[in-house]
Design a protein around this nucleic acid. Structure first.
Lengths: 210, 210
DNA sequence: ACTTTGAGTGTACGCATGTTCACTGATTTC
DNA sequence: GAAATCAGTGAACATGCGTACACTCAAAGT
């Protein structure tokens, strides 16, 4: 390597290439789905020869798993931030809707990846995503269980609400992702939809348990 | 053609081959997703030489669209039958849960196809599925609007409930599809989950509108 | 009877793919 | 400053792909 970053320490340059490969795979996946992206396409797009790919990932499957990890670390940061937000205690629903739409907007590509590959990806990737989503449901349940109106619910009920919330999140992420660019009005509409659906879940639950 | 069906009338034999191609594509899609299935794989599996494929479909995309059509005709038959069932008037929710699980079990492959290719398929297929699902939401809304407890709701509300029901149907179809074979206990669990979620939607809606 | 039609065949082509191997040369290690 | 390391190179391969083309030979049309 002599032109793009001459004096980069070796490890840093390697990491940069690794990120270029990850970013390329993520971008190419958006157009055709991860499973249709070839090792050569990714390498080409990352500005690297196909054989160099193997210095970073054993196979395309491993690349896929790395993308799953990256995507969920984004998601986890989102829930951790939301937990610190005092507004969440007053009004989970509006907060969640805001956070969701904002997070999806910020890292659209990662959400798109999860939504798409959850059902459409190679089997190892699908399995990994399912596992991460299950974990995420449990983590969200912990957050929800601390909330004022919920603290005396059974843990099964909390788990179910959490599952419904996550399912909703995935559905709405799908919608935001499939949304044509430059239509912020639609985005507001989706956010409003998400809000109403979450309210529905909470209201329905409260009434049914009484 | 001389061995497999010597004296078949020409048109009938053609139709039979066409169905073999459709069935092959459906089966192969389950393992790898439709987009990874090649024209040659389908032809091979259908017992036909690759070039013969073109006598039936212009391209793999067209095959995909034919599968979408086939899948939704299954779905439509299901809703039409359910509409005749008097039980539906008494208890939409249990009826819907039964019908859903039963229908999915009967034509698992078609539901799997829709659930998978809705987000993971080639763009033309995705678009077609979205369109069909939108239509289906509207059709279901018509059915729902006739129901006793719903007849005085606004049509917007009915449309939204219908959308939530269909979203739920897709989600649950995904679960049934991803379900390991020979575990009827899980199936009952999914059915119960679907029932609870639909009840949630109806209860939530009723209470919020008052 | 004889001609036309058209579903299915077989060969052949150019192209993209995943993986192999021996290599280069700057950075790191000593 | 010599030696070792290792990210990235470039040529070569076998394989599977979509499609073009000329073909066969029963069934359908006359």
């Amino acid at each position: 390597m002599s032109e793009s970053a001459q004096s980069a320490p070796r490890q840093a340059q390697k990491e940069r290439t690794r990120q270029a490969i990850l970013a390329s795979a993520l971008e190419l996946s958006q157009e055709q789905g991860f499973a249709q992206v070839s090792l050569r396409q990714v390498s080409r797009h990352a500005g690297v020869v196909p054989t160099a790919f193997y210095r970073h990932f054993e196979s395309m499957d491993q690349l896929g798993l790395a993308l799953v990890e990256q995507s969920f670390s984004t998601l986890r940061r989102m829930i951790r931030d939301a937990q610190r937000d005092p507004q969440v205690f007053d009004n989970i629903i509006d907060a969640a809707a805001d956070v969701l739409v904002e997070a999806v907007k910020q890292s659209k590509a990662h959400f798109a990846f999860v939504a798409r590959e959850r059902v459409g990806g190679p089997e190892v990737v699908r399995t990994a995503i399912r596992h991460e989503l299950d974990l995420f449901v449990s983590e969200l349940a912990v957050v929800l269980a601390r909330l004022p109106n919920i603290e005396n619910w059974s843990s099964d009920d909390v788990q179910m609400v959490s599952r419904l919330f996550v399912r909703n999140m995935v559905s709405n992420a799908e919608e935001v992702v499939e949304m044509p660019d430059g239509r912020p009005d639609l985005e507001e509409q989706i956010k409003e939809g998400a809000r109403r659906q979450m309210r529905l879940i909470v209201v329905g639950f409260r009434d049914w348990r009484s």
